[in-house]
């Protein structure tokens, strides 16, 4: 469904991605794990068009997207929930959700999806007239996912959804992520610091080290791999 081939990205003189190739099959959850600064977020930002690859190709649904503007990439059904949630702080919860549905004009459908989001995250319905900036970290992450889902994406890219959240909230959010994949058939590309959680949720995993993929395998196999356990799972 989504395929990166030999993608290189530079920030000025820094060579951030050194020939990344990866594939996200339809209906699956694929995760990218690795240390800070390995290029995980850079990969997502390049896919969503915020960064331009210096070489290599990105195809989605058989269409090249690496030269498209971010707003056109969203139109193809690919949505990116950025690191740090990036809720619009001075827009209300409702307005944040409306921005997620910016490209749609079917008012009835949008309202149905808003109700659907409130079913997943009931706390958001209670807070709907509050400014996004006043929500707690966990609520903001819920809102970020709900906002992305308002555009009815086929593929969702999540960047560090567990960052800075209490374990119980993380649990809740990952249950929703798994549910979206199982029941809505959503394809997910997940970037996550918490490697054990990510590998438990995902079908397939890629391990990054300083801009290159050093390993790729089924998530369950990676979770058992000695090298991965030592480096990322905190157990020898």
């Amino acid at each position: 469904m989504l395929r990166l081939e030999d993608v290189h990205v530079h920030y000025g003189k820094i060579h951030a991605l050194k020939g990344i190739s990866l594939e996200v099959p339809e209906g699956k959850i694929v995760t990218i794990i690795g240390a800070n600064g390995a290029g995980k977020s850079t990969t997502l930002q390049t896919i969503s068009g915020l960064l331009r690859p210096t070489s290599g190709t990105i195809t989605y649904d058989g269409q090249r997207i690496d030269l498209m503007a971010p707003s056109d990439i969203v139109k193809t059904g690919l949505c990116h929930t950025p690191e740090g949630r990036r809720i619009f702080p001075e827009l209300t919860v409702d307005e944040n959700l409306s921005m997620g549905a910016y490209l749609r004009s079917d008012k009835g459908g949008i309202e149905t999806d808003r109700k659907r989001a409130f079913q997943w995250f009931p706390i958001l319905e209670e807070r709907r007239t509050q400014h996004g900036g006043t929500l707690s970290g966990g609520e903001q992450q819920m809102l970020a996912i709900a906002r992305s889902m308002m555009g009815r994406p086929k593929l969702l890219m999540l960047d560090e959804p567990s960052l800075g959240l209490a374990p119980i909230i993380v649990q809740q959010i990952f249950e929703i992520i798994a549910m979206l994949n199982r029941e809505e058939g959503l394809t997910i590309l997940l970037v996550e610091q918490n490697a054990s959680l990510a590998l438990r949720t995902a079908d397939r995993g890629y391990v990054y080290e300083t801009g290159v993929v050093i390993m790729e395998d089924d998530a369950s196999a990676l979770a058992k791999n000695e090298q991965v356990r030592e480096a990322y799972l905190g157990s020898a």
Binding site: S48, G49, L50, A69, P70, S71, V74, K75, C79, H80, P82, R86, F88, P89, E90, L91, M99, G100, Y102, L103, R147, G151
Partner: peptide, 10 residues
């Protein structure tokens, strides 16, 4: 508030 995120909304 946030142009990058706005772009990600389409």
């Amino acid at each position: 508030m946030d142009q990058k995120t706005a772009a990600l909304m389409g």
